[in-house]
Design a protein around this nucleic acid. Structure first.
Lengths: 217, 217
DNA sequence: CATATCTCGATATTTTTTTATCGATATCCA
DNA sequence: TGGATATCGATAAAAAAATATCGAGATATG
Protein backbone atom coordinates (compact mmCIF):
# COMPACT_ATOMS: atom_id res chain seq x y z
CA UNK A 1 0.00 0.00 0.00
CA UNK A 2 2.82 2.41 0.73
CA UNK A 3 0.77 4.68 2.94
CA UNK A 4 -1.59 3.49 5.68
CA UNK A 5 -5.23 4.02 4.86
CA UNK A 6 -5.82 6.18 7.96
CA UNK A 7 -3.00 8.50 6.96
CA UNK A 8 -4.43 8.76 3.47
CA UNK A 9 -7.77 9.74 4.95
CA UNK A 10 -6.23 12.42 7.08
CA UNK A 11 -4.37 14.15 4.28
CA UNK A 12 -7.41 16.02 2.96
CA UNK A 13 -8.07 17.25 6.46
CA UNK A 14 -4.61 18.80 6.55
CA UNK A 15 -5.13 20.12 3.06
CA UNK A 16 -8.26 21.91 4.06
CA UNK A 17 -6.72 23.30 7.21
CA UNK A 18 -3.63 24.51 5.38
CA UNK A 19 -5.76 26.34 2.86
CA UNK A 20 -7.43 28.16 5.71
CA UNK A 21 -4.01 29.17 7.03
CA UNK A 22 -2.96 30.33 3.59
CA UNK A 23 -6.10 32.43 3.29
CA UNK A 24 -5.14 34.08 6.57
CA UNK A 25 -1.73 34.90 5.15
CA UNK A 26 0.17 32.44 7.31
CA UNK A 27 3.20 31.13 5.46
CA UNK A 28 4.69 28.60 7.78
CA UNK A 29 3.28 26.03 10.17
CA UNK A 30 4.49 23.40 12.61
CA UNK A 31 3.01 20.03 13.43
CA UNK A 32 2.41 21.21 16.96
CA UNK A 33 0.15 23.99 15.72
CA UNK A 34 -1.73 21.76 13.31
CA UNK A 35 -2.17 19.25 16.08
CA UNK A 36 -3.54 21.87 18.40
CA UNK A 37 -6.15 22.97 15.90
CA UNK A 38 -7.00 19.58 14.50
CA UNK A 39 -6.86 17.68 17.76
CA UNK A 40 -4.18 15.26 16.70
CA UNK A 41 -0.78 14.49 18.17
CA UNK A 42 2.09 16.20 16.36
CA UNK A 43 4.04 13.00 15.74
CA UNK A 44 1.21 11.51 13.83
CA UNK A 45 0.88 14.55 11.63
CA UNK A 46 4.60 14.57 10.98
CA UNK A 47 4.45 10.96 9.89
CA UNK A 48 1.45 11.49 7.68
CA UNK A 49 3.08 14.45 5.99
CA UNK A 50 6.28 12.54 5.43
CA UNK A 51 4.47 10.27 2.99
CA UNK A 52 3.97 13.25 0.70
CA UNK A 53 7.74 13.70 0.53
CA UNK A 54 7.71 17.15 2.09
CA UNK A 55 10.63 18.18 4.33
CA UNK A 56 10.35 20.72 7.07
CA UNK A 57 12.83 22.87 8.87
CA UNK A 58 13.56 22.40 12.56
CA UNK A 59 12.11 25.11 14.77
CA UNK A 60 10.14 26.63 11.89
CA UNK A 61 8.05 23.81 10.50
CA UNK A 62 6.78 23.58 6.96
CA UNK A 63 6.08 26.16 4.28
CA UNK A 64 2.30 26.22 3.97
CA UNK A 65 2.18 26.68 0.19
CA UNK A 66 4.73 23.92 -0.38
CA UNK A 67 2.86 21.61 1.91
CA UNK A 68 -0.42 22.18 0.12
CA UNK A 69 1.27 21.53 -3.18
CA UNK A 70 2.91 18.37 -1.83
CA UNK A 71 -0.41 16.96 -0.67
CA UNK A 72 -2.09 17.80 -3.95
CA UNK A 73 0.65 16.21 -5.95
CA UNK A 74 0.67 13.16 -3.76
CA UNK A 75 -3.07 12.69 -4.07
CA UNK A 76 -3.01 13.34 -7.79
CA UNK A 77 -5.25 16.34 -7.36
CA UNK A 78 -3.39 18.49 -9.85
CA UNK A 79 -4.18 16.46 -12.87
CA UNK A 80 -7.92 16.50 -13.00
CA UNK A 81 -9.76 13.24 -13.62
CA UNK A 82 -12.85 13.39 -15.75
CA UNK A 83 -15.73 11.28 -14.55
CA UNK A 84 -19.14 10.02 -15.55
CA UNK A 85 -21.95 9.99 -13.04
CA UNK A 86 -24.84 7.56 -13.25
CA UNK A 87 -28.09 8.24 -11.44
CA UNK A 88 -29.43 11.76 -11.78
CA UNK A 89 -31.55 11.60 -8.64
CA UNK A 90 -31.22 13.73 -5.56
CA UNK A 91 -27.76 12.64 -4.62
CA UNK A 92 -26.53 12.68 -8.21
CA UNK A 93 -27.80 16.21 -8.62
CA UNK A 94 -26.05 17.23 -5.44
CA UNK A 95 -22.73 15.87 -6.66
CA UNK A 96 -23.16 17.40 -10.10
CA UNK A 97 -23.55 20.75 -8.39
CA UNK A 98 -20.40 20.41 -6.29
CA UNK A 99 -18.22 22.73 -8.35
CA UNK A 100 -15.52 22.51 -5.71
CA UNK A 101 -14.71 18.97 -6.75
CA UNK A 102 -12.56 20.41 -9.52
CA UNK A 103 -10.21 21.70 -6.82
CA UNK A 104 -9.81 18.11 -5.75
CA UNK A 105 -8.93 16.60 -9.07
CA UNK A 106 -12.43 15.61 -10.08
CA UNK A 107 -14.54 16.90 -12.92
CA UNK A 108 -17.86 15.27 -13.65
CA UNK A 109 -18.39 15.72 -17.36
CA UNK A 110 -21.72 14.02 -17.93
CA UNK A 111 -24.59 12.33 -16.18
CA UNK A 112 -26.47 9.22 -17.22
CA UNK A 113 -29.85 7.84 -16.34
CA UNK A 114 -32.45 5.42 -17.61
CA UNK A 115 -35.46 7.58 -16.76
CA UNK A 116 -36.79 9.10 -20.02
CA UNK A 117 -37.99 12.08 -18.00
CA UNK A 118 -34.46 12.93 -17.02
CA UNK A 119 -32.66 12.15 -20.24
CA UNK A 120 -31.99 15.28 -22.25
CA UNK A 121 -32.17 17.54 -19.20
CA UNK A 122 -29.28 19.70 -18.10
CA UNK A 123 -28.31 19.51 -14.46
CA UNK A 124 -25.80 22.07 -13.23
CA UNK A 125 -24.53 22.47 -16.75
CA UNK A 126 -24.17 18.78 -17.40
CA UNK A 127 -26.29 16.90 -19.93
CA UNK A 128 -28.17 13.80 -18.78
CA UNK A 129 -27.61 11.07 -21.34
CA UNK A 130 -29.20 7.67 -21.79
CA UNK A 131 -27.31 4.94 -19.98
CA UNK A 132 -26.87 2.88 -23.14
CA UNK A 133 -24.40 5.44 -24.41
CA UNK A 134 -22.14 5.21 -21.39
CA UNK A 135 -19.78 2.43 -22.41
CA UNK A 136 -19.21 3.79 -25.88
CA UNK A 137 -18.70 7.37 -24.73
CA UNK A 138 -16.41 6.35 -21.89
CA UNK A 139 -14.18 4.60 -24.38
CA UNK A 140 -14.12 7.45 -26.83
CA UNK A 141 -13.52 10.10 -24.19
CA UNK A 142 -11.09 7.91 -22.21
CA UNK A 143 -13.01 8.32 -19.00
CA UNK A 144 -11.46 6.34 -16.17
CA UNK A 145 -13.69 7.19 -13.27
CA UNK A 146 -17.35 6.41 -12.74
CA UNK A 147 -19.66 7.58 -9.97
CA UNK A 148 -22.75 5.57 -9.09
CA UNK A 149 -25.55 7.47 -7.38
CA UNK A 150 -28.32 5.19 -8.58
CA UNK A 151 -30.51 2.92 -6.44
CA UNK A 152 -28.90 -0.22 -5.05
CA UNK A 153 -30.86 -2.45 -7.41
CA UNK A 154 -29.26 -1.00 -10.54
CA UNK A 155 -25.75 -0.52 -9.17
CA UNK A 156 -24.32 -3.85 -10.22
CA UNK A 157 -25.66 -3.52 -13.71
CA UNK A 158 -24.28 0.01 -14.01
CA UNK A 159 -20.92 -1.11 -12.74
CA UNK A 160 -20.75 -3.71 -15.45
CA UNK A 161 -21.51 -1.12 -18.09
CA UNK A 162 -18.77 1.05 -16.67
CA UNK A 163 -16.26 -1.75 -16.72
CA UNK A 164 -17.16 -2.59 -20.30
CA UNK A 165 -16.50 1.03 -21.16
CA UNK A 166 -13.00 0.79 -19.78
CA UNK A 167 -13.63 2.63 -16.54
CA UNK A 168 -10.94 1.79 -14.00
CA UNK A 169 -12.30 3.22 -10.77
CA UNK A 170 -15.79 3.44 -9.36
CA UNK A 171 -16.98 5.72 -6.60
CA UNK A 172 -20.04 3.87 -5.43
CA UNK A 173 -22.71 5.61 -3.38
CA UNK A 174 -25.16 2.71 -3.62
CA UNK A 175 -25.21 0.49 -0.54
CA UNK A 176 -24.17 -2.69 -2.32
CA UNK A 177 -20.93 -4.51 -2.80
CA UNK A 178 -20.12 -4.39 -6.49
CA UNK A 179 -18.91 -7.50 -8.20
CA UNK A 180 -16.22 -6.34 -10.61
CA UNK A 181 -12.88 -7.65 -11.86
CA UNK A 182 -10.17 -7.35 -9.23
CA UNK A 183 -8.19 -4.74 -11.13
CA UNK A 184 -11.06 -2.26 -10.88
CA UNK A 185 -10.72 0.15 -7.97
CA UNK A 186 -13.98 0.40 -6.06
CA UNK A 187 -14.56 2.88 -3.32
CA UNK A 188 -17.82 2.46 -1.47
CA UNK A 189 -19.36 5.50 0.08
CA UNK A 190 -21.88 3.94 2.35
CA UNK A 191 -23.91 6.48 4.25
CA UNK A 192 -25.52 3.77 6.31
CA UNK A 193 -22.15 2.52 7.37
CA UNK A 194 -21.26 5.99 8.41
CA UNK A 195 -24.53 6.39 10.18
CA UNK A 196 -23.85 3.22 12.09
CA UNK A 197 -21.03 4.67 14.17
CA UNK A 198 -23.12 7.67 14.94
CA UNK A 199 -26.17 5.67 15.98
CA UNK A 200 -24.05 3.41 18.09
CA UNK A 201 -22.39 6.27 19.91
CA UNK A 202 -25.72 7.96 20.45
CA UNK A 203 -27.28 4.75 21.67
CA UNK A 204 -24.37 4.31 24.07
CA UNK A 205 -24.92 7.80 25.36
CA UNK A 206 -28.55 7.17 26.12
CA UNK A 207 -28.24 3.64 27.41
CA UNK A 208 -25.25 4.17 29.64
CA UNK A 209 -25.49 7.81 30.62
CA UNK A 210 -23.08 7.45 33.50
CA UNK A 211 -20.22 6.32 31.31
CA UNK A 212 -19.52 9.51 29.42
CA UNK A 213 -16.25 8.96 27.58
CA UNK A 214 -16.43 12.46 26.16
CA UNK A 215 -14.71 11.57 22.90
CA UNK A 216 -15.81 13.93 20.15
CA UNK A 217 -14.30 11.82 17.43
CA UNK B 1 -14.50 2.20 22.93
CA UNK B 2 -15.72 -1.35 23.39
CA UNK B 3 -15.75 -2.19 19.73
CA UNK B 4 -12.99 -1.26 17.29
CA UNK B 5 -14.00 1.43 14.86
CA UNK B 6 -13.32 -0.75 11.81
CA UNK B 7 -15.61 -3.45 13.15
CA UNK B 8 -18.30 -0.91 13.77
CA UNK B 9 -18.01 0.24 10.17
CA UNK B 10 -18.34 -3.28 8.86
CA UNK B 11 -21.51 -4.11 10.75
CA UNK B 12 -23.83 -2.30 8.34
CA UNK B 13 -22.22 -4.19 5.50
CA UNK B 14 -23.16 -7.46 7.16
CA UNK B 15 -26.57 -6.07 7.91
CA UNK B 16 -27.19 -5.29 4.29
CA UNK B 17 -25.88 -8.63 3.13
CA UNK B 18 -27.98 -10.53 5.65
CA UNK B 19 -31.08 -8.75 4.50
CA UNK B 20 -30.36 -9.92 0.99
CA UNK B 21 -30.06 -13.47 2.26
CA UNK B 22 -33.30 -13.13 4.16
CA UNK B 23 -35.05 -11.88 1.05
CA UNK B 24 -33.84 -15.01 -0.73
CA UNK B 25 -35.34 -17.14 2.00
CA UNK B 26 -32.04 -18.28 3.47
CA UNK B 27 -32.37 -18.83 7.21
CA UNK B 28 -28.92 -19.71 8.31
CA UNK B 29 -25.45 -18.55 7.38
CA UNK B 30 -21.84 -19.22 8.30
CA UNK B 31 -18.93 -16.82 8.48
CA UNK B 32 -17.25 -18.72 5.69
CA UNK B 33 -20.14 -17.96 3.36
CA UNK B 34 -20.32 -14.31 4.34
CA UNK B 35 -16.61 -14.07 3.85
CA UNK B 36 -16.83 -15.58 0.42
CA UNK B 37 -19.45 -13.10 -0.70
CA UNK B 38 -18.08 -10.07 1.07
CA UNK B 39 -14.44 -10.77 0.45
CA UNK B 40 -13.43 -10.90 4.06
CA UNK B 41 -11.75 -13.59 6.10
CA UNK B 42 -14.17 -15.62 8.24
CA UNK B 43 -12.32 -15.01 11.50
CA UNK B 44 -12.69 -11.32 11.17
CA UNK B 45 -16.40 -11.59 10.57
CA UNK B 46 -16.80 -13.90 13.53
CA UNK B 47 -15.03 -11.40 15.74
CA UNK B 48 -17.08 -8.49 14.47
CA UNK B 49 -20.31 -10.35 15.03
CA UNK B 50 -19.32 -11.35 18.53
CA UNK B 51 -19.50 -7.72 19.57
CA UNK B 52 -23.24 -7.79 18.91
CA UNK B 53 -23.59 -10.59 21.44
CA UNK B 54 -24.91 -13.12 18.95
CA UNK B 55 -23.96 -16.77 19.39
CA UNK B 56 -23.77 -19.24 16.56
CA UNK B 57 -23.93 -22.98 16.37
CA UNK B 58 -20.95 -25.05 15.25
CA UNK B 59 -21.31 -26.51 11.81
CA UNK B 60 -24.48 -24.49 11.10
CA UNK B 61 -23.54 -20.91 11.71
CA UNK B 62 -25.95 -18.16 12.67
CA UNK B 63 -29.68 -17.70 12.27
CA UNK B 64 -30.04 -14.94 9.72
CA UNK B 65 -33.03 -13.23 11.31
CA UNK B 66 -31.47 -13.32 14.76
CA UNK B 67 -28.25 -11.92 13.41
CA UNK B 68 -30.01 -9.03 11.70
CA UNK B 69 -31.87 -8.27 14.89
CA UNK B 70 -28.67 -8.46 16.92
CA UNK B 71 -26.92 -5.95 14.67
CA UNK B 72 -29.89 -3.60 14.72
CA UNK B 73 -30.14 -3.73 18.46
CA UNK B 74 -26.44 -3.24 18.86
CA UNK B 75 -26.41 -0.20 16.60
CA UNK B 76 -29.52 1.22 18.19
CA UNK B 77 -31.37 1.06 14.91
CA UNK B 78 -34.61 -0.11 16.43
CA UNK B 79 -35.34 2.97 18.40
CA UNK B 80 -35.54 5.66 15.79
CA UNK B 81 -33.73 8.92 16.42
CA UNK B 82 -35.36 12.07 15.22
CA UNK B 83 -33.08 14.59 13.61
CA UNK B 84 -32.95 18.15 12.33
CA UNK B 85 -31.19 18.92 9.09
CA UNK B 86 -29.65 22.29 8.34
CA UNK B 87 -28.90 23.35 4.78
CA UNK B 88 -31.65 22.66 2.27
CA UNK B 89 -29.35 22.69 -0.73
CA UNK B 90 -28.68 19.83 -3.10
CA UNK B 91 -27.18 17.48 -0.59
CA UNK B 92 -29.71 18.37 2.06
CA UNK B 93 -32.53 17.67 -0.35
CA UNK B 94 -30.97 14.36 -1.23
CA UNK B 95 -30.83 13.31 2.41
CA UNK B 96 -34.35 14.53 3.09
CA UNK B 97 -35.51 12.25 0.31
CA UNK B 98 -33.73 9.16 1.65
CA UNK B 99 -36.77 7.46 3.06
CA UNK B 100 -34.71 4.38 3.76
CA UNK B 101 -32.95 6.10 6.61
CA UNK B 102 -35.87 5.21 8.81
CA UNK B 103 -34.86 1.58 8.49
CA UNK B 104 -31.56 2.59 10.01
CA UNK B 105 -32.81 4.39 13.04
CA UNK B 106 -32.90 7.85 11.56
CA UNK B 107 -35.86 10.10 10.85
CA UNK B 108 -35.28 13.62 9.67
CA UNK B 109 -38.24 15.60 10.96
CA UNK B 110 -37.50 19.10 9.74
CA UNK B 111 -35.09 21.11 7.65
CA UNK B 112 -33.66 24.55 8.37
CA UNK B 113 -32.12 27.20 6.20
CA UNK B 114 -31.34 30.91 6.20
CA UNK B 115 -32.31 31.50 2.57
CA UNK B 116 -35.71 33.27 2.53
CA UNK B 117 -36.42 31.61 -0.81
CA UNK B 118 -36.25 28.20 0.78
CA UNK B 119 -37.96 28.91 4.07
CA UNK B 120 -41.56 27.80 4.03
CA UNK B 121 -41.02 25.31 1.22
CA UNK B 122 -41.74 21.64 1.64
CA UNK B 123 -38.99 19.25 0.60
CA UNK B 124 -39.91 15.57 0.49
CA UNK B 125 -42.65 16.21 2.97
CA UNK B 126 -40.51 18.17 5.39
CA UNK B 127 -41.00 21.84 6.07
CA UNK B 128 -38.03 24.19 5.70
CA UNK B 129 -37.91 26.44 8.74
CA UNK B 130 -35.85 29.51 9.53
CA UNK B 131 -32.62 28.69 11.29
CA UNK B 132 -33.39 30.98 14.22
CA UNK B 133 -36.05 28.56 15.33
CA UNK B 134 -33.72 25.58 15.52
CA UNK B 135 -32.46 25.84 19.09
CA UNK B 136 -35.85 26.43 20.57
CA UNK B 137 -37.56 23.69 18.60
CA UNK B 138 -34.80 21.21 19.27
CA UNK B 139 -35.28 21.75 22.97
CA UNK B 140 -39.03 21.46 22.84
CA UNK B 141 -39.04 18.39 20.65
CA UNK B 142 -36.05 16.80 22.46
CA UNK B 143 -34.11 16.38 19.25
CA UNK B 144 -30.68 14.90 19.90
CA UNK B 145 -29.25 14.61 16.42
CA UNK B 146 -28.37 17.34 13.95
CA UNK B 147 -27.28 17.02 10.35
CA UNK B 148 -25.28 19.77 8.70
CA UNK B 149 -25.45 19.95 4.91
CA UNK B 150 -24.72 23.64 4.67
CA UNK B 151 -21.64 25.28 3.16
CA UNK B 152 -18.42 25.06 5.15
CA UNK B 153 -18.53 28.75 6.05
CA UNK B 154 -21.75 28.41 8.06
CA UNK B 155 -21.08 25.02 9.61
CA UNK B 156 -19.43 26.23 12.82
CA UNK B 157 -22.16 28.72 13.45
CA UNK B 158 -24.86 26.11 12.83
CA UNK B 159 -23.11 23.67 15.13
CA UNK B 160 -23.20 26.22 17.91
CA UNK B 161 -26.91 26.74 17.42
CA UNK B 162 -27.41 22.99 17.58
CA UNK B 163 -25.42 22.68 20.77
CA UNK B 164 -27.36 25.50 22.36
CA UNK B 165 -30.53 23.62 21.45
CA UNK B 166 -29.33 20.59 23.37
CA UNK B 167 -28.36 18.51 20.38
CA UNK B 168 -25.93 15.78 21.39
CA UNK B 169 -24.66 14.41 18.11
CA UNK B 170 -23.86 16.08 14.82
CA UNK B 171 -23.54 14.42 11.45
CA UNK B 172 -21.45 16.94 9.60
CA UNK B 173 -21.27 16.92 5.82
CA UNK B 174 -19.42 20.22 5.63
CA UNK B 175 -15.67 19.87 5.15
CA UNK B 176 -14.67 21.64 8.35
CA UNK B 177 -13.68 20.53 11.78
CA UNK B 178 -16.35 21.71 14.16
CA UNK B 179 -15.36 23.26 17.41
CA UNK B 180 -17.85 21.96 19.96
CA UNK B 181 -17.78 20.89 23.61
CA UNK B 182 -16.08 17.53 24.05
CA UNK B 183 -19.24 15.74 25.13
CA UNK B 184 -20.86 16.40 21.75
CA UNK B 185 -20.49 13.50 19.32
CA UNK B 186 -19.37 14.72 15.94
CA UNK B 187 -19.20 12.53 12.91
CA UNK B 188 -17.62 14.13 9.88
CA UNK B 189 -18.69 12.90 6.50
CA UNK B 190 -16.03 14.38 4.33
CA UNK B 191 -16.51 13.57 0.68
CA UNK B 192 -13.17 15.08 -0.18
CA UNK B 193 -11.48 12.84 2.29
CA UNK B 194 -13.16 9.92 0.70
CA UNK B 195 -12.25 11.15 -2.72
CA UNK B 196 -8.64 11.34 -1.64
CA UNK B 197 -8.14 7.59 -1.40
CA UNK B 198 -9.76 7.13 -4.73
CA UNK B 199 -7.66 9.79 -6.44
CA UNK B 200 -4.55 8.43 -4.90
CA UNK B 201 -5.23 4.90 -6.04
CA UNK B 202 -6.11 6.09 -9.50
CA UNK B 203 -2.99 8.23 -9.66
CA UNK B 204 -0.94 5.22 -8.57
CA UNK B 205 -2.50 3.19 -11.33
CA UNK B 206 -1.54 5.69 -13.98
CA UNK B 207 1.87 6.59 -12.66
CA UNK B 208 3.08 3.09 -11.90
CA UNK B 209 1.16 0.96 -14.34
CA UNK B 210 3.46 -2.03 -13.92
CA UNK B 211 2.74 -2.38 -10.21
CA UNK B 212 -0.85 -3.58 -10.37
CA UNK B 213 -1.74 -4.68 -6.86
CA UNK B 214 -5.22 -5.63 -7.98
CA UNK B 215 -6.82 -4.78 -4.66
CA UNK B 216 -10.48 -3.93 -5.17
CA UNK B 217 -10.80 -2.47 -1.72
C1' DC C 1 -24.20 -45.71 15.71
C1' DA C 2 -19.55 -44.28 14.67
C1' DT C 3 -16.79 -41.31 11.96
C1' DA C 4 -15.69 -37.48 9.05
C1' DT C 5 -16.36 -32.71 8.39
C1' DC C 6 -17.68 -28.20 9.15
C1' DT C 7 -17.87 -24.12 11.99
C1' DC C 8 -17.92 -21.83 16.25
C1' DG C 9 -15.43 -19.55 20.13
C1' DA C 10 -11.21 -18.79 22.55
C1' DT C 11 -6.41 -17.99 22.62
C1' DA C 12 -2.13 -16.83 20.35
C1' DT C 13 0.48 -14.61 16.78
C1' DT C 14 1.40 -11.35 13.36
C1' DT C 15 0.82 -7.09 11.21
C1' DT C 16 -0.46 -2.41 11.14
C1' DT C 17 -0.98 1.91 13.20
C1' DT C 18 -0.20 5.07 16.80
C1' DT C 19 2.51 7.13 20.19
C1' DA C 20 6.97 8.02 22.64
C1' DT C 21 11.84 9.18 22.77
C1' DC C 22 16.00 11.36 21.36
C1' DG C 23 19.72 13.53 18.77
C1' DA C 24 20.39 17.15 15.29
C1' DT C 25 19.52 21.63 13.54
C1' DA C 26 17.45 26.10 12.70
C1' DT C 27 15.85 30.30 14.91
C1' DC C 28 15.41 33.61 18.52
C1' DC C 29 17.15 36.55 22.14
C1' DA C 30 20.36 38.24 25.42
C1' DT D 1 28.23 35.65 19.31
C1' DG D 2 26.51 32.03 22.39
C1' DG D 3 23.00 29.68 24.72
C1' DA D 4 18.09 28.48 25.17
C1' DT D 5 14.26 26.58 22.83
C1' DA D 6 11.30 24.73 19.45
C1' DT D 7 10.75 21.44 15.90
C1' DC D 8 12.15 18.14 12.65
C1' DG D 9 13.39 13.31 11.32
C1' DA D 10 14.56 8.77 12.71
C1' DT D 11 14.25 4.96 15.65
C1' DA D 12 11.91 2.50 19.29
C1' DA D 13 7.98 1.14 22.01
C1' DA D 14 3.11 0.54 22.71
C1' DA D 15 -1.49 -0.16 21.29
C1' DA D 16 -4.82 -1.69 18.15
C1' DA D 17 -6.44 -4.54 14.58
C1' DA D 18 -6.15 -8.43 11.58
C1' DT D 19 -5.10 -13.08 11.01
C1' DA D 20 -3.85 -17.83 12.40
C1' DT D 21 -4.44 -21.93 15.23
C1' DC D 22 -6.87 -25.31 17.78
C1' DG D 23 -10.14 -27.77 20.73
C1' DA D 24 -15.08 -28.59 21.14
C1' DG D 25 -19.57 -29.30 19.52
C1' DA D 26 -23.06 -29.94 15.82
C1' DT D 27 -24.50 -32.15 11.67
C1' DA D 28 -24.29 -35.27 7.99
C1' DT D 29 -23.04 -39.78 5.98
C1' DG D 30 -21.98 -44.39 5.61
Amino acid sequence: MGIPQPSLNRLPQYHHYLNQLKAKGINTVSCSLIGLDLNLVPVQIRKDLQYTGIVGKPKTGYAVAELIAAIETFLGWNNVQEAFLVGAGNLGTALLGHERFSTFGLRIVAAFDTDPEKIGQWIHGKMVLPLEKLADLAKRMSIHLGIITAPAECAQWIAEKMVSGGIQAIWNFAPVRLNVPPEIIVHNEDLYSSLASLSWKLAQRFNIPFQQDGGSN
